[in-house]
Amino acid sequence: MPDVKPAQTHPDALIEIKDVHFAYDERPILRGLSLNVRKGEVLAVMGGSGSGKTTLLGLIGGRILPNKGKIMVDGQNVPKLDRSALYALRTRFGMLFQFGALFTDLSVYDNVAFPYREQTNLPESVIRDLVLLKLQAVGLRGAAGLMPSQLSGGMARRVALARAVALDPMLMLYDEPFTGLDPISTGIVGRLIRRLNDAFGLTSLVVTHDLDASLKIADRVIVLAEGKVYRDLTPEDVRTTSDAFVRQFADGLPDGPVPFHYPAPPLVDQLLGKSSAGEIAP
């Protein structure tokens, strides 16, 4: 396994993660993960299922605590923050959840207005203008009166995006933004991620396993495996590299460094009843 350079402290790093360990019910997920996210970049985080991609977002957002390690976001160590400091930091985050996580009992308009109403004292007339502007940015000003149940998956994702950027965050976290979208919606959401990032000077962390979509928008791609940053590449590297693991991932090969079979005793042994482990009675 080729070594990845340990993360250095960069003056332009918005997020610095150092040697983070995290186990879920004794099952280690992250084992000494270190990572820097630079200001202004769109970083795609890739990896197989269970590689700790979503865990990484939870750690950065302070929703889960690491067993060990430091997670510095804009100079603050997230796991050590108390509730009010954490909430103060989170007002500067925007997060897009896997399926949007729109509030089902509120209309599209009220969903986007929610952060303003909760976090600011702006008069309703100002909120109205802001909400319409944000909806315009995602192309859904006309859907303001609809309920979330009336939206398609892609539209819901875009409304959630408008809601996530409502308070002009410094950092955007995307949890599987392309899951379950058709190619057109995937393209729209991907372009919006890039455009919002550049227009508002954000920093974006996109957790995904949609390689094509993320290669189009990311400045940098990291691949998580075995609880660490396994590869740190540019999109061009991903397309050209001969690294077996990245190739398997990029080309969707069933077998390779990630084995097709769940660990098991040899088939012949088990069929002949020689194996003791994992015995299944005939």
Partner: peptide, 13 residues
């Protein structure tokens, strides 16, 4: 549907 997590991430208890 992550609505509670989303609210928590929007710094609303």
């Amino acid at each position: 549907t992550d609505q509670i997590a989303a609210m928590d991430m929007m710094a609303v208890n």
